[in-house]
Simulated assay, not measured.
Amino acid sequence: MKAATVSEIKRELKTKTTEELSELCLRLSKFKKENKELLTYLLYEAADEESYIQSVKTEMDDQFEEINTTSYYFIKKSVRKILRTVKKYIRYSPHKTTEVELLIYFCSSLKEMSPSISRNVTLQNLYDRQLTMIRKKVSTLEADLQYDYGVLLDNMEGISG
């Protein structure tokens, strides 16, 4: 089966009634966990972006606390899993500032982790790549936000060096 384009789907959705749209959303939510999470974000959390960011940060904190720190192998696996989860949550939000804030929080949590990531090249490279990505995202924001986040990033890069 070949999937329809977004414009074709949009055109078809316009022909549906409210009840039919509701039924389609419910069916969609049954198939994949991400669909259900996206619907949850859109219905309950999109109106209050600050609390959404805070809930993701709290989940991130919990995941960082659960990391098995006996070897860098386990640390790397766990950190990559946390980053995948954060990126998934970032995709739900249309706000660029949400992405920047969550990635900055991820990097600061990673930097504060014990044992230090500076002793492991892979983790240090992951940290540096995220800072580079954040810089690119910040450059697309409004000037006042660019300055605020730029100062924060300068401080973080100063710590990493």
Rank of each mutant, 00 (worst) to 15 (best):
R84H: 03
D144N: 09
Q63Y: 00
E157G: 08
T5A: 09
I9D: 06
L123V: 12
D61C: 04
R135K: 15
K33V: 05
Q63R: 13
Q54L: 11
I75G: 00
L21K: 12
Y147K: 07
E34A: 14
L110Q: 14
G150I: 00
Y73G: 01
V56K: 03
S7D: 14
V138W: 02
Y72F: 06
E45M: 06
I53K: 02
E59M: 11
D144M: 05
Y89H: 15
D62C: 03
R84C: 08
N125R: 15
S114G: 15
D61T: 13
E50K: 10
R11D: 11
K36A: 14
L123G: 05
K16V: 05
I82M: 02
E99M: 14
V138Y: 08
M113E: 13
Q130W: 07
E99C: 14
Q130M: 07
N155I: 03
V151D: 15
K30F: 03
S114W: 00
R91I: 05
S139H: 03
I159E: 09
S55T: 08
L21R: 07
G150M: 04
R91G: 13
E20T: 04
M113W: 13
T85W: 04
V56Q: 01
K77F: 06
S118H: 10
T17Q: 02
E59Q: 09
R91P: 07
T85G: 05
L102Q: 12
S114Q: 06
E8L: 07
N120I: 11
Q146D: 01
T58A: 07
E50Q: 02
V151Y: 11
D144F: 00
N120Y: 15
Q124G: 02
S114L: 06
A4L: 15
I53L: 03
E8M: 09
R135V: 05
A4C: 09
Y52L: 04
L38I: 04
L123R: 11
K87M: 11
R27N: 00
I117E: 08
E23F: 09
E37H: 02
E45A: 05
L13F: 15
Q63M: 03
M1S: 02
A143D: 05
K57H: 01
L102P: 15
V138Q: 12
L43P: 01
K111S: 09
Y52T: 05
V100D: 13
E142K: 00
G150Y: 07
G161C: 12
K136D: 00
I90E: 13
V6H: 11
T58I: 07
L43V: 02
D144H: 08
S139M: 01
S93E: 13
S22D: 08
K36S: 10
G158I: 01
Q124C: 10
E34T: 03
I104Q: 14
S108M: 12
L145D: 07
K137A: 10
L131C: 14
T69F: 04
L26G: 09
A4Q: 14
G150S: 03
D62F: 13
L24Y: 11
D154S: 02
K88V: 05
V121K: 06
T5Y: 11
Y73N: 02
L131I: 06
K2W: 10
S93C: 09
R129Q: 06
L42C: 07
Q124P: 00
E23Q: 13
Y41S: 14
S109R: 15
I82F: 08
L126V: 06
Y44K: 05
K96A: 01
D144T: 03
E49T: 11
F31R: 12
T140R: 04
N155C: 03
K81Q: 11
E34M: 03
I75K: 04
